[in-house]
Write a protein that binds this DNA or RNA. Structure first.
Lengths: 146, 146
DNA sequence: CAGCATCCAAGTTGATACTG
DNA sequence: CAGTATCAACTTGGATGCTG
């Protein structure tokens, strides 16, 4: 494709042309780390990734594992993840077709950190539920007492 | 609001009535950990949270820090985060008004893990950019050669 | 099985304007 | 300053039907 001169992607506010040190910063609006971050943490990407930590999986197995995801969203998530180099798609020619998805090393690193986060949140959900209740009660009282 | 009987929120597939052990599971469709997870990892929530790790911050300071966020989205993110008990909103009566946002202990724990993830991703972005390039090239070739 | 294409409803977002 | 209200534009997601 045209306009593909080595690595100097046009990247907003967080990277330069390769002569100086490159710094990526999710806080910067145009930084390519933002989309990647979104693929990883978005509604489905993270769940797909973590599901793959249990071992390689096929399309429909993933679909079952990630409760509530639609075909379309799963395909979309897998594409994004594959493009970012987090997941590898492996086709086994056969009938019926067999396609497996596997984490790359980078993907594995992401999953480690991500599942740490998930476990931490799951482990604190009781407190979250309490906080929500308090918040809602306070809001209701406020709406009343005004 | 009506229908608020103690803690047995109607929570899909991952929690019961308090007599047995409660297990939260982000993979389950109706689990309340999912929304919370989304607030933390969503487009803005995570950035707001991590921004607050630098110290307490006021509304407009946050707005400047999180490049590209709109007023509306910031307010929305802060509400969700506050409701989940990740952030505290502190009002200082004065003119002009002064409102500060601060991480709770739980919020701090989340941020630790989240920023680990962010740093890992930022640190691997060079590889991601390469992967994307390879992916796009392969796709282009495929679209051609077919 | 794996997955793309299309359509459409519903939700999300951002700009703008306004309030306390 | 710290928000809320409103509206139009855009995006998302899911259901359905079809292909290899």
């Amino acid at each position: 494709m045209a306009g593909n001169m080595s690595k100097q992607a046009p990247v907003g506010d967080c990277v330069d042309d390769g002569l100086e040190e490159v710094v990526f910063d999710v806080f910067a609006r145009g930084c390519p780390s933002r989309p990647t971050m979104e693929h990883v943490t978005g509604r489905w990407g993270g769940l797909v990734l973590v599901a793959l930590a249990d071992g390689d999986m096929r399309f429909n197995a993933l679909r079952r594992r990630v409760d509530g995801i639609s075909e379309k969203m799963l395909a979309q998530a897998l594409h994004a993840l594959e493009r970012d180099g987090l997941v590898v798609r492996e086709v086994r020619q056969a009938i019926p077709p067999k396609v497996e998805y596997r984490l790359t090393e980078f993907g594995g690193g992401v999953v480690e950190r991500l599942s740490g986060l998930i476990e931490f949140i799951e482990g604190n959900m009781a407190g979250v539920l309490d906080a929500q209740e308090r918040y809602d009660t306070a809001k209701a009282a406020e709406a009343d007492g005004v």
